[in-house]
Design a protein around this nucleic acid. Structure first.
Lengths: 198, 198
DNA sequence: AATATTTTGAGAGCTACTCTCATTTGGTAG
DNA sequence: CTACCAAATGAGAGTAGCTCTCAAAATATT
């Protein structure tokens, strides 16, 4: 049986989406109000009006409520849509600008909170870095398509690693402030493109 | 310089050092035999013949038994001792070669086990990556000294980030095999020095 | 309306980690 | 050798993240 692609599916799906959003919203609010460590999963569950066991059906860990990055899929989509005449690095910079420009103000505010939280809670940094690790694969894939080489090519992966490293450094330098991060990243990419002269 | 002999301390100090080493040795052995997750702190404590509470007096977390990197201080020392005529990247490569060449075979074997363990246990990757994050500061410091700029200089930190990123990518590519990693790193640094052409 | 499937809540259980307090052990001075 | 102090240890209780099981409730299907 072929089901219609996307859109508002059955009642079940919509309810699940709502529950998921509610958990995340309450979690982030509580983290902001009382701090990450001081907030227990039970408290989040109570605020979202679900049982603690249900919490773990929606998020594998407490961290995951913070770390799910809504921007990532948008980035991938935007990156693939960049015109072919742009250089690899040019495409990257354009992608970044596009995604952030198109983001509505409330989403932007959420992103601000999220990044600040991650930056200030040491417990959250490690798992965030793990996501950066996955970013290498993503970027290697993008680069591979653009320059017509394999995603497992050593130089392609090396390039992707450097980009991720540069983003990481910018994140630390920006102190969890996404506005500063955005500006730093453009400079960082320019510096990278120039061959990182010191 | 504190390259002090540091030999005959009091009995207390020596006993502590022995206890610490025993805990770590048994921990790594058990991890190898039964897997990281399947080994409990209580089991490690029992094997090392200490109480569970004492375990946490020696290591802040279970992870720490794996993640303590004996190479880091050696790297820093070797890096600072590199002759001034070498380029920044040249000094980095020389440092790497030196430290690994001087490492005795048994330490090398331990390092192999350690890296393989970290690579294969997802739970250990995040904290390892966190160490990589700290590596940015270390490298920025080194670079700053060598090129006579500030360690907070944007370009210096950007360079350090790229180096860490490249190391990270190499680690993933090497699959936790330090022999491969060592070779890949030299290529990776050469590619970086050339400006990461694709 | 009856039935099949999915989602949920309740609760028990495991383990990493923290804290407190009494006991032991190593170092030192009379 | 004895007495004393400080550091290290062990025992135990407690917290919280996370897993698992099972029965009840909600939703989809016929």
């Amino acid at each position: 049986m072929t089901s219609s692609p996307a859109e508002p599916q059955g009642l079940r799906e919509r309810k699940k989406a709502r529950t998921r959003a509610a958990i995340q919203r309450h979690a982030l609010r509580l983290f902001r109000e009382r701090g990450y460590a001081a907030t227990t999963v039970d408290q989040i569950a109570a605020a979202a009006e679900i049982s603690p066991s249900t919490f773990f059906r929606y998020f594998p860990t407490k961290e995951a409520t913070v770390l799910y990055d809504a921007l990532d899929p948008l980035m991938v989509e935007a990156a693939l849509a960049q015109p072919a005449e742009l250089s690899l690095m040019g495409a990257l910079r354009a992608t970044l600008r596009e995604v952030y420009e198109r983001m509505p103000e409330d989403a932007w505010q959420d992103e601000r909170d999220r990044q600040l939280l991650v930056f200030n809670e040491p417990e959250l940094r490690a798992p965030m870095l793990e996501q950066y690790g996955d970013g290498i694969d993503l970027l290697a894939d993008l680069a591979a398509r653009r320059v017509g080489r394999s995603a497992t090519d050593f130089e392609v992966r090396n390039w992707a690693g450097a980009v991720v490293g540069v983003v990481l450094a910018a994140f630390y330098t920006a102190g969890g402030d996404p506005d500063r991060l955005l500006h730093s990243l453009d400079d960082a990419f320019a510096h990278l493109e120039a061959g990182l002269p010191l």
